[in-house]
Computed example of a mutant assay.
Amino acid sequence: MSQDQAAGLRQWADAQRMKQEQGGEELAEESLAPMTPVPASQAAPESELSPEVSSGAPQPIAPLAITPPAPLKPLWVIGPAGRGTLTRAQVKQRLGQWSTLGRKWAGSPEAWEIHVIDPDAPELARLTAQHARWALWISSDADAFAQMYRALRLAREHGGPQRLLALHEPNVRRQGLLSNLRAAAASYLATDLLLLAR
């Protein structure tokens, strides 16, 4: 390398170094300069500011995805004819008793949508065609057999279901009332009364 070339390179390097030093000084001067307020007419409109700057309040967090509750299972319960005393609460209580006894199908009483209907209701045939889950409320009165058989007969005469769950108290014995009612329903009314296995 000739001396002219070396001298030229040194001059170029010195020039570059001076430019950098001058640029650094300019930046340092800008950072040390006092901030002057911007007139309101020159300020950026509020719509251009970020949401965090435009409002002092924290921004809402997107809600977590919540799975909707499972739909309720409809259960239509035929009560004693003409008595009108059966309530949804009684049916839910009975389902709760069965759930406590380990009947998995009963699940939570709150998972059921209970409908109580009279055995001679005019809409019984239409409802039977639309819904699959039916039960017969069986009380433990002394004259329960006569009342329950009458309710089943009226339900069949009004187009009621041919298959129902026997919804009875846990302490009602299978031998006696339940088995006699089941046999009579099958023989005389072509109705299948489902009894829970012990």
Results as ranks from 00 to 15, higher is better:
R173P: 08
L193P: 02
G96L: 06
T87N: 06
R126L: 11
Q3K: 14
M35W: 14
L27C: 12
W137Y: 05
I66K: 08
V53G: 10
A65F: 14
E29D: 06
A65P: 09
S31P: 05
A146V: 11
K73E: 10
G160K: 04
R153A: 09
E157A: 12
P39T: 14
L32S: 09
L27I: 12
V172W: 04
S179L: 09
P60C: 07
P74V: 03
E113S: 15
I138K: 00
V172H: 01
L101R: 10
G102W: 10
A135Y: 00
S139Q: 11
D14Y: 09
A142K: 12
P161K: 00
P80C: 11
F145K: 13
E30L: 15
T191D: 04
P122T: 14
L195P: 01
A70E: 09
Q3C: 12
A15N: 14
S139F: 02
Q42T: 05
L27D: 04
A28M: 05
G8R: 15
Q90S: 12
L124G: 03
I114A: 01
A7E: 12
A125P: 09
Q42C: 09
S55E: 14
S41T: 14
A144Q: 04
A132H: 11
R163F: 10
S2R: 11
R83P: 03
M148V: 12
L95N: 01
R83K: 11
A43E: 15
I114C: 02
R126C: 05
W98M: 10
A70M: 09
T100K: 14
S187Y: 12
W105M: 10
A129P: 01
S54W: 10
A65M: 12
P45H: 08
R17S: 10
A33N: 04
M35G: 08
R126G: 08
A185I: 03
L95E: 03
A146C: 07
A183I: 11
E110N: 09
P39N: 05
W137A: 07
W98Y: 15
I138L: 02
G176K: 05
K104T: 13
W112K: 00
L167V: 02
I61K: 13
L49K: 13
A185G: 05
D141C: 05
P119C: 07
A7V: 08
Q22L: 13
A15S: 13
G23E: 13
Q97A: 15
E113K: 14
G160I: 00
H158T: 06
A28T: 03
Q42Y: 12
S54F: 15
E123S: 15
I114F: 05
M35V: 14
A13Y: 07
R103A: 11
L196V: 03
D120K: 14
D120Y: 05
L72D: 03
A166F: 03
R156S: 06
A70I: 08
R103H: 11
M148F: 08
P170A: 10
E46N: 15
P119Y: 03
L165M: 12
Q97L: 15
A155L: 08
P51L: 13
T100H: 15
G23H: 13
W134R: 01
P60K: 03
G159V: 02
P109M: 02
A144W: 05
R126Q: 14
H158W: 10
E169M: 09
